[in-house]
Design a protein around this nucleic acid. Structure first.
Lengths: 349, 349
DNA sequence: CTGTTAGCGCCTTCAT
DNA sequence: ATGAAGGCGCTAACAG
């Protein structure tokens, strides 16, 4: 049977308190030889601490909850991987919950919080809403949010710099490749990351003195299907753009599908740009030009921030952090270089 | 502060036992009005049961551990998703551990087992080894293995029918498309699923009276890179096959890369077939012909089996199950139809 | 139907 | 440096 500290105490002729100390305390609060003895016996008995009991007594759980939107695709995978790695290194277990057909985000969260199952939560949400806010403010365990929600200053936030990412690649299209006719397939309107990407797109155009065309901004839903729908709308416009900037790679892939079936050549007839740099992008042909997002880094850093919080739980003086991870540009073959010197000249190459 | 059953008992003028029953027992072991009263008070106090305490008392955890090889790509994602969904429906939490640079599978397992952190474990392993076996046989909690390990009759196993999957697609290549020159990029030699796929390939050829050529069976490692290496070896052979059967889609993708860079046209110069039907395959051009594997089903069914085991824990009479999930064929455009009636005629089309 | 009483396994003051 | 004892919050006999 499974041994417990009581068995060890018995065999060693000491009290359970001493065993507990010998096994747990890093301080030298136990005579070295006593500790030796206890350690030896606990090995013999193949003693394994029961974390349930430990947690109950200590009122902590050594577990981190990770709440994700519906898991799908490589993106979330990398998040999980990043979080898992750091959590493990820090001695925490990882409990994952994603919303799916049978459960939404709020339910996932409540599951964690209510039952004091986790010490802290890392949260990725499509968008903040009242219900969520209420849940979050009702519970006092540390929370790190992985979305670009600038408005919520009271939480630790770790996210990529969506604005800058979008801005940079649009600027690259304009300045380096002489493009001006750039449409965007945005993400869902409510999604914060999506909003920031759109802002970046708009600012970059404005700063280059290019007029924003509303009919060139179409909303997608971050899925390949959504990208297809949006792309076909764009390609059926009377006045077509030269480049489509999709707010994520999945939608960019959708553009590839539509372009192919409509007989548009990428990049000669239409150029495509994505965002995220997920694995998929490297399989598309021509290779996708996209914004590189260090996804697993987001997970890693979030976890570090959370663990840090957990270690200094009583110290409320530390302000919520807002960490932005910068992005890069992956240059593929999905965009033409526009050789017209005069940006105003129309017509396909 | 957080209320506990003691507070409720106080306020309701009953004992904690009654509260516990009113809240927990589905039986009508409590007078309806008493229950009403308790329920009401527990709402007022915003009572949330502490699952730690509950678990400690009940000696169960309501959690399932999922142990995966290094998480990477869509495949594992879908597993997680499937497991998560069923686990949630069954009232279980999901604790995920994947091996990574800082931890191997055995460590993950031990983490779960030792601390009685989970009631059961779902395991996906590249291959069985002595160390693993020892760990598994040392602990008595239910385990479900998601690999095609026919030899281990003492565990519940849920996996796809790798043999049949490989056999079917090879048979399809031979009978429907008149191919005979089929090479294989196998998975890692130690990997059980990989072995079964190879067996299926070999049997299908043999049964069709086609000689097995050892130089046409090359070992890969299930990664895109590995597929690339293997593919370039095959394409540099003096006598080349017409079709390359990659043991998974990632390696098939590697073949695409190499074929492209060497100037081979798919499928005219070389046909490619994959296995798994992960998301990626649908983005490859020409579309990949592959074996469809209902990945999230594996996760779902494994979880069902496990939960079932957990519910009948004392009933040891139930024999270990061995569930095989059947596969399908996805017909893409990555294989030519060979029109030569005589299989022996050589040369490219 | 309900209360009493013991734990579950571990940690943690408070004494010694 | 160590022991005794109480408690973390809940469940599960056993009585009544």
């Amino acid at each position: 049977m499974k041994a417990n500290i009581y068995d060890i105490a018995n065999k060693a002729g000491v009290s359970t308190a001493t065993v507990s100390r010998a096994l747990g305390d890093k301080q030298n609060s136990v005579k070295p030889e006593t500790r030796e003895k206890i350690l030896k016996i606990s090995e013999e008995l193949e003693y394994r601490p029961n974390s349930l009991a430990k947690n109950l007594a200590k009122k902590t759980t050594s577990a981190i909850g990770l709440v994700l939107p519906e898991i799908q695709g490589d993106f979330y995978n990398q998040i999980i991987k990043g979080v898992d790695e750091i959590a493990f290194s820090g001695g925490y277990h990882l409990i994952v919950a994603s919303s799916h057909s049978k459960r939404n985000i709020v339910e996932s969260l409540l599951g964690f919080m209510h039952e004091s199952l986790v010490d802290g939560v890392i949260l990725m949400i499509p968008s903040m809403n009242n219900q969520l806010e209420e849940v979050l403010s009702n519970y006092k365990i540390p929370i790190v949010i992985m979305n670009d929600i600038q408005a919520y200053k009271k939480y630790d936030i770790v996210c990529i710099d969506n604005y800058q990412g979008a801005y940079s690649i649009i600027e690259y299209l304009i300045k380096s490749l002489n493009h001006t006719k750039i449409a965007m397939i945005a993400g869902p309107a409510g999604n914060h990351d999506s909003q920031m990407r759109k802002k970046g797109y708009i600012s970059a155009l404005k700063n280059a003195g290019i007029k924003i065309r509303k009919d060139w901004i179409i909303e997608g839903d971050f899925t390949t299907k959504g990208g297809e729908l949006a792309c076909s709308r764009i390609l059926s416009l009377k006045e077509k753009p030269d480049v489509i900037f999709a707010a994520n790679d999945n939608m960019a892939a959708g553009c590839y599908n539509v372009a192919e079936s409509l007989g548009f050549n990428i990049p000669n007839d239409i150029s495509i740009v994505g965002f995220d740099n997920i694995e998929l992008g490297s399989y598309l042909r021509p290779k996708l030009t996209t914004v590189h997002v260090p996804v697993s880094e987001i997970g890693k850093i979030s976890t570090k921030v959370l663990i840090n919080r957990l270690h200094n739980k009583d110290d409320n003086s530390v302000e919520p952090q807002n960490i932005k991870i910068s992005t890069g540009i992956i240059i593929g073959d999905s965009v033409t270089k526009n050789n017209y010197l005069d940006h105003n000249i129309r017509g396909k190459k």
